[in-house]
Nucleic acid binder design. Sequence first.
DNA 1: CGGAGTGTTGACCCATATCAACTCATGTGG
DNA 2: CCACATGAGTTGATATGGGTCAACACTCCG
Lengths: 229, 229
Amino acid sequence: MLNQSVAAKTAGPNPAKLGQHVTDEFHLVARHAGLVETEFFYNKDEEIYGEEEPGDYVYQVIRGAVRAYKLLSDGRRQIGAFYLPGDIFGLESGPIHRLTAEAVVDTNVRLVTRRGLEKAAGTDVQVARRLWAMTSADLRHAEDHMLLLGRKNAGERVATFLLEMDSRLAGVGMMALPMCRRDIGDYLGLTLETVSRTLSRFHLQGMLGFSGARQILLRNRAGLRNLDA
Amino acid sequence: MLNQSVAAKTAGPNPAKLGQHVTDEFHLVARHAGLVETEFFYNKDEEIYGEEEPGDYVYQVIRGAVRAYKLLSDGRRQIGAFYLPGDIFGLESGPIHRLTAEAVVDTNVRLVTRRGLEKAAGTDVQVARRLWAMTSADLRHAEDHMLLLGRKNAGERVATFLLEMDSRLAGVGMMALPMCRRDIGDYLGLTLETVSRTLSRFHLQGMLGFSGARQILLRNRAGLRNLDA
DNA sequence: CGGAGTGTTGACCCATATCAACTCATGTGG
DNA sequence: CCACATGAGTTGATATGGGTCAACACTCCG
C-alpha cells in the first residue's frame, strides 16, 4: 500500500490506507483542538530532533520513514521504533525527547505544537484520552520489543521484523523497506551481517523473494509466523 | 482477581520514603477521583493478573514486589519491569493487560477499579493528565530497557540493574533484593548463571559487598556507573 | 569510468549459554 | 532432633550463536 520507496520515484505518496483511519487520528485531534498543522521536509539522514531536546512538536509521517534511537557513549545504537506513513511520533508527556529521531529517507511530515496539544488536552478530555492512547500504543510496542531483544534468537527477530513491516507497509505485492541493513540490525539488536545472513537463509529456504536488497516478497508468512515463536 | 483477599494487616514495615511522595501519587488521583481503595494480599509467586486478561484494576505496591513479564511459547520469559513499594502497575489505556503480573514475594497491594479511573479521567483533566504521565513513565523505562537488552553486555546490564535497584529501594545501608537470580536474568536478558558470575566478579573487584546472596552493598557506585556506559 | 555506499559471504573468535557438580539454607515429617 | 528433600546460589567445563574482521559484488551517480 503505502510503500513510499527509496528515492521518491513515482511517489504516489498518499495511499488510500493512509488517508483512512491513521491520518484521521492526527487530523481528528489537531482539528478538534483547532491547531494549525504545518508541513515539513527532512532529507535522508537528517535529524528531526535530538535526545534530551525540548519536545516542542508532535509529528506525523506523510511520506518516508523515521527512526527513533538511543546511543551509548561508545556509539552503540538501539533503534526503538521506525515510524512509517501515517504514524505519529515525538509525542511526550514530559517536556523532553527521550530518543533521537532521524529521517531514514527523504521524508515529509506534518506537525503541530506540543503546547497546542497540551492546551487542548487541558480543556478537552477527548483529546487527553487520545494522547494517552497514543503513548500507550508506543508502550505496547516497546513491551513486545523487549521480549524480542531479551529472548528471541536471530531468526526469530528477523521473522518478527519482516512480519511487522509486512503488516505496516506492504500491500499485496512486494514490500519496499526504506531502511538499510544496519538500521535493521540496530532495531533488532543484531549486526548488519547477521541480518544479511538470516535474510539469505530465508531466501534459500524459499521463505521470501528478493528484487534488489530492499524489495522483499514474503512467500511463506505462516513459516515466518512459526519462527516468531 | 480473587483468592485470599486477606484484607492486609495494617502493614507493619511502611518505610518512610514510601509514605512520602510516591504513595501520594496514587492517593492523589484516587482520592481526587473519589474512588474506594481496597487492600489486597498475594502470596509469593501468586499471579495477580494474566496477559490478555481484562485490566479491571490498577494497583499500587504497598509492601513486597511484583514482576511483569511476557512468555514465548517455549517458556522463555522476559520480565519487563519490577514494581516495588510505592509503584503503580496494571494501568492500561486499553481494556486488556499486556503482561502477566506476579508477586515476587508476599505482597500487599492497594487497588482501584479501572472503570472508576476512566470515569474520573472523563470528567477531570487533572486525572487524565496523571494517567498519561504514568503510562509515559512506563514507556521511558521500556525505552531505556530496550537499549540495555539490545546493546549492553552482561557487565553493563548487571551494573545498570544494581544502580536501578539501589536508587529504587535502598536506604543508606545494604539493599535487600526481593527477587532471585533467575528473575534478574529474565529481566536483563541473561541466564541466571551469567548474573551470578557477574555479581561474583564485581564482588571480587571490590565493587560490592554481600551479606547473603540478596543483601548487597554497593561499594563503588561510580565504578558501576562507568560500566553502565 | 571510478569511487562511495550498500549488501553479501567467508573464516575465525569470543561472550554468553548450556550442562553439570557442588554448597548452603530452609523446612518437613518420622 | 535428625534425615532428607527442595530450592537457591555458585562455580567449572564445554558448546555455540552471533560478533568481528576481511574480501568481494553490486548499484548508483558524478
